[in-house]
Amino acid sequence: MTGPTGAPATAAGRGAAGWIDALHRIVPTPERYARFDTDRHSALAIMRCPPGVLDLLMKEGLRYRADGDRVLFDDSDIRNVAAASGSGGSVLELVQRYLFRFAAAAPAEWTAERTWAVRNLAACPAGDPCAEPWEFAPLAAEDFGGRSWDVRTATGAAVDARGAGVDGLAPLAEFAATVRTAGAVRRVRDRLVRDAFHESLDEMRSGRMAYQAMPPALRNDPAAARANGTANCISVSLHLERVFTDAGLEARTRKGYLMGLLGSDHSWVEIREDGRWKVVDPVFALLGLRQGASQEFVEFCLGSVPNRLVPCACPADLETVRHTHRRTPAPTRNVVLVTPLKEVPHERP
């Protein structure tokens, strides 16, 4: 669709052919891990494609289950097809392009002090009214030399849902804070850690491990994820943690937020060296390279703290938001919204 000036409504992308090609290129979620809990409305909110494209993908073999008069898709399949579509307008493509544009900027941009307003909005995909408890991972910005203030949580009618849907669902819980981040340049010396980082990065760059979204049960089991030929920030962090601890190194995984024009959850692994924790993040390097970053950025991802990460007091295999539905742990959907702040607002002591 174009206007009188020729400006398209979205980036032109590769059209329907790009979507079909993506469907046949992704590694589908193994049947035993598949979760058919994404309805048509949510799928379209994630993919940002015309409904006719989704119909075409179903004819071409996109898996779905009928649930009464509803059609349900595997959430990871939907995200992976969208990310590989080349449409330029799906949520994951936008996240990767705009959150990692800074990686191609001058190195000073990787560590400059920044202030952000962050909101984590969560929804319960069960669909029916749900008033059960929500828990958000606490921020630990101080661990990376930053700080946070004006931290608040809200549920139900108190949630500020302006400007956001959560995969087409109404947000039921909100975490919000103002955060200051400051990066730091550090370098990992340990040869085993350096080799493992580069091996992981090479696996993803070469396609031996497809960088993809995975359901929690698969991404939290790094051996199963590797056997499936897929990797994401969580499975890579957990895998490297095992490699490092098996070698007798002090290591831990971390969940946190990635800051930019949009936000995202992110996970990485940290190792203790020279009396301090160093971030080891091959996925950060991979996504930076995809946006034109240099080898200098790759080296930066082997020890340094980027100013775009806000750590939580939370390991990689736990979510930033947790919820029960009908008194049992339930999958949640969340969206992280970030506003870069030009000026540092008044900080509470």
């Binding site: 409504a9 980036a11 940002r48 330029g88 392009r97």
Partner: peptide
């Protein structure tokens, strides 16, 4: 907003 920026 990002879709708009991307298109432009």
């Amino acid at each position: 907003l990002l879709r708009i920026v991307s298109a432009l």
